[in-house]
Design a protein around this nucleic acid. Structure first.
Length: 651
RNA sequence: GCCGGCAUAGCUCAGAGGUAGAGCAACCGCCUUGUAAGCGGUAGGUCCUCGGUUCGAAUCCGAGUGCCGGCUCCA
């Protein structure tokens, strides 16, 4: 039995420690070891970070993080945040700080009331001051205060922003302050022990923001930064950032001649032949899956009478994002989504329950007027296509249809080697339509579809669309960034708005459920993500140029053309480098274009009917018979394999 | 949409109140080439657009457009 005033902490090694309730993590650390206590930066109770100075009210799984722990960074960045605010106040005593950041997994930030934008020179000075503050090594102190005490402190400083923040804290909640040196701020923590544990800090950028993110509020100046225990970790972070920059699809796309943008059509990509080759192959792939899964592809108009958009609800809810045009005194809108047109097709016949589910797939071009400033590369555009589909089915069919969509989605992600897939279920939001009973059924159907197939997911309360709950799929790319791709959404609204019906076995009219699903999301956006995921080195089946034939000199051009012809006969996309350059130069050029296979042909190869194969990985496979190579590559394309066949697999 | 920054050759960038520069790419020629840049030459600019200041503007000022980073929003 544990006495009521004792708590039990389970340490990482499985051992248990009984300590009086109210003991701080730091005291626990000290009882374990002097060194541990000295190096501690934070603790964790049942997976939640806790401050070292927090009196523990209950027990649980308990860990101490030290400067050596990978998790130390979060504590360090949170503390660096306070150093930032401290530094700005030291440099500009008339400034006022607002609040920091919630998520310290990578960055920290603070907002300031400041009369102008911070300049790069400002950031340098602030960074230096932060280092000086860290060198002072003042201990962080945690203080619980009454509301009145907190108010007095910030009123004396003239911090009106803080006073408002204070008012936002619900009555009865503990108000904690953190101090280091002469600095104090409202903060829940957790923080490191001493300022000196902030070993390496880098300010990244500054920008203007609104107080509490609301445009009607006062404008503040935000500074972003990151921090680590050691300079080596900071350097690793900067290297990772450089890697991300090198993979930026906005750079690689034009560089690889995949697409371009033109100011005459802002945020609307122009896909060049090479980019369109990839684009259309992505669609071909989905088209194949659609066909296998019983989705019938439809083609629907681009421009429709606004009456349709009144019916669908887009006029009321989505007008700001739509393009309009008027002709013959009739108002039209360019479609931003396919669903309403599919509803019109549904209504062209009297539907029976025997017809359901009806599945319409559509790669139609969509246009959305995105506010300037939110567009970016291929990830957020005004002209795009989705691998869209809408399923009309009965309530009983929902689960199976959801599962069908989920199955295709997971298959697609495997093909692209997105191995880390996170699934989320978005439930009823505050602002919604439909009866709660209907939401109960819909949410349960989504969860059951996932549960019954052993798929783990997180519940994102209130994250559903206003017309129905949804499943979202997020994948992690090759350098660890998460992207939201696919989505499966239940919709009870549109069938009602369009008065869709089917005749059931009982002879009565019933309303079908509609399921929206996309797997790649927008093809444009997926393309962009894929470029960054692969750094532009597409798998063979997608590569715009799959093989480059490199004749050693003009004398072997004829043979090179012959080799290309034989590969093309197998459906492969091949280019022949007929330039008057040395081999090294041709290889460099093909390499920079990320062509998967380079086929060098010279005297020996011509005599033997072979080509010397070099992969873009740099691997040299030596000479291989052309015919076997062509067959093997064609097979790999057919399989949509992610990896390039290595030596021994070809020929 | 809001805040800040940027805009010079196809690309990357230098310059700066007094006739516009480099490297790479392009084009021409020489070389006939063996696994990431051979050599020489030629051409290429409304210095984003419009307006203003000035004897003179790519340069200074204003407005617009586009792009970039943030905010908000989102596939």
């Amino acid at each position: 039995m544990t006495p009521p005033d004792e708590i039990v902490l389970t340490l990482p090694d499985g051992s248990e420690r009984r300590v009086p309730a109210g003991t701080t993590p730091l005291a626990v650390a000290a009882s374990i070891g002097k060194r541990l206590a000295a190096d501690a930066v934070g603790a964790e109770l049942d997976g939640r970070p806790v401050d070292l100075r927090l009196p523990l009210a209950r027990g649980g799984r308990f860990r101490i993080f030290t400067t050596k722990s990978p998790e130390a960074g979060e504590f360090v960045r949170h503390s660096a945040e306070h150093l930032l605010a401290d530094a700005v106040r030291r440099l500009w005593p008339e400034s006022e700080y607002d609040a920091g950041r919630q998520d310290h997994s990578e960055k920290f930030q603070y907002d300031f009331r400041f009369p102008r934008a911070f300049t790069p020179e400002d950031l340098e000075r602030i960074e230096e001051t932060m280092r000086a503050i860290a060198a002072e090594d003042a201990p962080f102190e945690r203080v619980e205060v009454s509301r009145a005490e907190a108010e007095t402190i910030f009123r004396e400083k003239g911090f009106t922003l803080k006073l408002e923040r204070l008012r936002d804290i619900p009555e009865g909640e503990t108000i904690t302050l953190f101090r280091h040196g002469g600095f104090v701020d409202l903060c829940r923590g957790p923080h490191v022990q001493r300022a000196g544990q902030v070993g390496a800090v880098k300010l990244l950028e500054a920008s203007g923001v609104y107080f509490k993110g609301d445009e009607r509020n006062e404008r503040l100046q935000r500074i972003y930064g990151t921090a680590f225990v050691t300079a080596e970790q900071l350097e690793a972070y900067e290297q990772a950032a450089a890697e991300a920059r090198a993979r930026d699809h906005r750079r690689l796309g034009p560089e690889l001649d995949l697409f371009s943008f033109n100011p005459l059509a802002p945020a609307s990509p122009f896909f060049h032949p090479k980019g369109a080759a990839v684009y259309t192959r992505l669609i071909d792939y989905v088209r194949e899956l659609n066909q296998k899964n019983g989705y019938g592809e439809v083609v629907t108009p681009q421009i429709l009478d606004v009456e349709l958009w009144h019916t669908s609800g887009h006029w009321d809810n989505y007008r700001e994002n739509m393009f309009f045009t008027e002709l013959d005194e009739r108002q039209y809108a360019v479609k931003p989504m396919n669903c309403p047109t599919h509803c019109l097709i549904y209504k062209t016949a009297k539907r029976s329950y025997r017809d359901l589910p009806i599945r319409y797939a559509d790669f139609g071009r969509l246009h959305r007027y995105e506010r300037s400033g939110v567009t970016s590369g291929l990830t957020r555009v005004r002209s795009f296509a989705q691998d869209d589909a809408h399923v009309y089915c009965t309530d009983e069919q929902v689960e199976a249809e959801v599962l069908r969509a989920v199955g295709i989605i997971l298959e697609i992600y495997r093909t692209f080697e997105f191995t880390d897939v996170a699934i989320g279920v978005g439930t009823r939001p505050q602002k919604r339509v439909g009866a709660d009973e209907q939401w109960d059924v819909a949410e349960a159907a989504l969860c059951r579809a996932l549960d019954n197939n052993g798929l783990a997911y997180s519940l994102n309360e209130g994250d559903g669309a206003f017309y129905g709950p949804k499943i979202d799929f997020r994948v992690r790319d090759a350098i660890g960034r998460q992207w939201q791709l696919g989505t499966v959404q239940l919709d009870y609204q549109l069938p009602q708005r369009f008065d869709l019906e089917y005749v059931a076995a009982d002879g009565a009219a019933h309303r079908p459920v509609m399921i929206h699903r996309a797997m790649l999301g927008s093809v444009e956006r997926f393309f962009g993500i894929l470029i960054e995921h692969t750094a532009g080195a597409f798998p063979l089946w997608l590569a715009p140029v799959q093989a480059a034939v490199l004749p050693l000199s003009e004398r072997f051009l004829d043979y090179g053309l012959e080799v290309a012809r034989r590969l093309r006969a197998r459906g492969l996309r091949v280019e022949v480098d007929d330039s008057n350059e040395k081999l090294g130069y041709k290889i460099r050029r093909a390499q920079l274009a990320k062509v998967p296979y380079m086929l060098v042909v010279g005297e020996k190869e011509r005599a033997a009917g072979t080509a010397a194969i070099r992969l873009r990985t740099g691997e040299d496979l030596g000479p291989l018979p052309v015919e076997g190579l062509a067959a093997r590559l064609a097979r790999q394309v057919e399989l949509r394999g992610a990896a390039l066949p290595a030596a021994g697999e070809i020929g």
